[in-house]
Design a protein around this nucleic acid. Sequence first.
DNA 1: TAAAGTATCTCAATGATTGAGAGATACTAG
DNA 2: CTAGTATCTCTCAATCATTGAGATACTTTA
Lengths: 169, 169
Amino acid sequence: MSGSGAPTASLPAEDPTGLQSFAVLLRRMNSEFNRIAQEFAQEQGLHLTDMQALIAILDADSDPDAAGEPMTPGRLRGQLNLTSGAVTACLDRLERAGHIRRVRDAGDRRVVHLHYAEAARGLARDYFRPLARSTDAARGRFSPEELEVVVRFLAEMNAELALLRRHSA
Amino acid sequence: MSGSGAPTASLPAEDPTGLQSFAVLLRRMNSEFNRIAQEFAQEQGLHLTDMQALIAILDADSDPDAAGEPMTPGRLRGQLNLTSGAVTACLDRLERAGHIRRVRDAGDRRVVHLHYAEAARGLARDYFRPLARSTDAARGRFSPEELEVVVRFLAEMNAELALLRRHSA
DNA sequence: TAAAGTATCTCAATGATTGAGAGATACTAG
DNA sequence: CTAGTATCTCTCAATCATTGAGATACTTTA
């Protein structure tokens, strides 16, 4: 610390539940997640983009919560912040590797629905298993009441972040 | 959900503090963070990689907690999972844009220390401000005792993730 | 001093991403 | 029903970040 400009400085982040603590913890968690994701993707010969796309497809396809509809290239484009060309290339790679199938929608034939192949499920499981184990290990150290608090916080946090998303759009 | 292989299936994630809920919440949070980071980077004409590098440099340079030492290309390489060429290119971009300076270490002259320029601080502030606001908004809805629980959970989670990192290395 | 080790950089090749535009299909109004 | 407009996906040449082997400069050990 060079004690530079900012008059708000010299807060040694001593408050363990202060904003600073949260910022540090959340940032670190994000970094770790990303590093793990990237490492796994690399091991599988995939790119981080491919991995993100695959997970988004799996989520949409198996989770009726998201929208009930399977993923489409267009939605992926928005969700991953890619251009159309990049989405096509990414899906080409995933399809060539046998992780997904493209299926023309019967109703609107401009639309392509993205379905995962069974192999992709295994891949996702392999990816999530260690993360799940870690999460479970952490969960195990808290009482049900405490877990409820944590879940509530995460939900609130997500709601705020979603808000932030719209705000800047 | 096609009710495939796994005998652990058919958990409709009804348990609001179950592992499933945590997985979904954490994953979503991670995605949002990444999307926000990427959008911001794009607005600034930077890449996500550059942004991550810049933050790592800022953290190391201003946070004595990390190591006391400023960041170096070598450490960045490990932290961001890049090759040497990519690190050099990334630092070239950041230096050209005036965000960082490269300074040869006096003691070991093979080593380059990375320091941020003042402009970079402003950039980081602009990046973190909305995130801080969101975090604060969420924080505001919890009692001090509850916040303590959340912080403890995040810390535990990070500890587990760090463990995971070593395990796979 | 020689040899081995370490930190960073160089550069040609690779390949993901961009971005404009084409092609195909859907809606909407005359 | 037809023309016109909007939407969804894909194509393709250009761009540019990344890779990876090696060069360079410095340090440490023998």
